[in-house]
């Protein structure tokens, strides 16, 4: 055990301790040193933030340069006769430039631009000499560089396309009520997807708004509400959209409320959410909720004589049922 440890120690020493001042290990140590100082400064009270961020950035720059230098010396790092060193350096550079752990947006940019930045890393030594002067690359090299750039642009496009699709299904989640197994462009790894559309949440929200407006209100107010329902529903929709996960979807998911039908003294108000966006097999779906709005007589809270009957007042009761709305699928009418 001791021997193994000593052996490892010796090997690490041989790898990491520079044989020459002018070597990539020097840069790595410099990077670690700056990081250490930045960390030490961070613990000191009242240390300037500028110094800390400067040191961290320096540490990153040293680290990137060390990786770059170290990998350009490792000639055997090949996949199918192709040096992959620049792509590792590119990854480190992307980490430094974009800090992808901070937000999803940064992560996306870091991954999408990784191939292009790596190509830049690969091309740079062909355009600059050691005195940092511009030199035009040789013709054969130029051709390889153009080819590499094009392949990497294609890779970046594919990655961006992936994120574009993720954006779509996030902005318009009702696209995913069923699996995307008809597509010639994407593979959906959820087999037989059966998820509720956002229409369910939309109708629930609308109903909550309506109940808030009408429940236990005087009946005459309710009748006026029903008369001007278009305006009232519009504001209810606006309120609901604020609480939805993907409010952008409303351009594809319209809410309709036909004139309420009267039965006995109560009204039946039906709310419909109709999907007009794309769907599998050229289908369409809608959801419906029916609310029963009825008057109830309740005793009025006024002082009365003992033997006199309590005067009554007509209040409103809204009953929309407990079950959530369900998608009704049909063929799209042409």
């Amino acid at each position: 055990m001791q021997d193994i440890f000593q052996d490892l120690n010796a090997q690490l020493r041989q790898l990491l301790v520079p044989k020459d001042i002018f070597a990539w290990q020097t840069l790595l140590l410099l990077s670690l040193f700056s990081l250490f100082i930045a960390g030490a400064l961070d613990t000191v009270e009242g240390a300037s933030q500028l110094a800390i961020s400067l040191l961290t950035n320096l540490s990153w720059i040293f680290f990137t340069a060390a990786v770059w230098w170290g990998l350009s010396e490792a000639k055997s790092l090949k996949v199918a006769d192709f040096h992959i060193g620049p792509w590792i350096t590119g990854a480190v550079l992307c980490l430094f430039l974009f800090r992808p752990w901070l937000s999803e947006f940064r992560l996306r940019w870091a991954i999408s631009s990784w191939p292009i930045i790596s190509t830049g890393v690969m091309a740079l030594p062909h355009y600059l000499n050691w005195e940092l002067e511009f030199k035009p690359p040789k013709d054969a090299v130029k051709k390889t560089l153009i080819m590499t750039l094009l392949v990497n642009l294609l890779l970046s496009s594919w990655i961006s396309f992936h994120f574009r699709i993720q954006d779509w299904v996030r902005s318009y989640p009702s696209l995913l009520v069923r699996s995307l197994d008809e597509s010639d462009f994407v593979v959906d790894f959820v087999i037989d997807r059966q998820q509720p559309s956002q229409g369910v949440a939309l109708l629930e929200g609308m109903i909550r708004e309506i109940e808030k407006d009408l429940d236990n209100q005087p009946w005459y107010q309710t009748e006026r509400w029903l008369y001007t329902r278009q305006i009232e529903l519009e504001s209810a929709l606006k309120e609901t959209l604020r609480s939805l996960e993907a409010p952008d979807e409303q351009v594809l998911l319209q809410v309709e409320a036909p004139a309420p039908t009267q039965s006995d003294q109560s009204y039946l108000l039906s709310l419909k959410a109709i999907w007009s966006g794309p769907m599998a097999r050229n289908g369409a779906f809608d959801l419906e909720k029916i609310c029963k709005i009825s008057p109830v007589d309740a005793p009025r809270a006024v002082p009365t004589e003992a033997d006199e009957p309590q005067p009554l007042t007509r209040l409103t009761e809204v009953d929309c049922g407990e079950d959530p709305a369900e998608e009704r699928f049909r063929a799209r009418s042409l």
Partner: peptide, 25 residues
């Protein structure tokens, strides 16, 4: 062009790419 296109065109693009058909109404 895709993010710049109006909603109708966008819906057509999504329909074509995700469901392999165009909306025809």
């Amino acid at each position: 062009l895709e993010p710049l296109s109006p909603m109708e065109v966008k819906a057509q693009i999504m329909s074509y790419l995700l469901f392999n058909r165009l909306l025809v109404n």
